[in-house]
């Protein structure tokens, strides 16, 4: 039978299909990119991300427990990076109620390099 629906490769493990809508935007390879994403994402969307991902985070960490930190399959790695993004987003939702520190003016600290893995 011919499949007529559009299929795209899932970024996350099937157990976390419910978080898939956030993956395209938030599975970003570097901290700097995740921080930049927070800056340009409206607060209402940051709250939606936080409210969806935070309650699933412990399950995600339990799922990730099965892997060696130096040998993480791609979908699991994406899930791990989504949790990195949860950390970045929490600064807006838990601390500042804003995409950035309201007292920061134009100050920004650029991440220039990070470890390869």
């Amino acid at each position: 039978m011919r499949n007529t629906t559009m299929t795209t490769e899932a970024l996350l493990p099937p157990e976390f299909a419910d978080l898939e809508p956030f993956a395209a935007d938030w599975v970003l390879p570097t901290l700097e990119e995740r921080l930049q994403r927070r800056l340009v994402t409206p607060m209402v969307e940051l709250h939606a991300f936080y409210d969806a991902v935070f309650p699933r985070a412990e399950a995600a960490m339990t799922y990730l427990d099965q892997f060696d930190v130096n040998d993480v399959p791609e979908t699991a790695r994406n899930l791990m990076v989504l949790l990195y993004s949860l950390s970045v987003v929490s600064v807006a939702t838990e601390v500042f109620s804003s995409q950035r520190d309201p007292n920061a003016g134009t100050t920004w600290i650029n991440e220039v390099s990070e470890p390869a893995t």
Partner: peptide
């Protein structure tokens, strides 16, 4: 080097929060 993914996540979160703290220190200087 982290020995588990949970350690790796702890490092990432510490880094994110440290950076916010340092940004706050930088803010006051101007």
């Amino acid at each position: 080097e982290p020995t588990t993914i949970r350690e790796r996540l702890a490092q990432e979160h510490a880094l994110v929060m440290m950076r916010e703290g340092i940004l706050q220190d930088a803010n006051t200087l101007e």
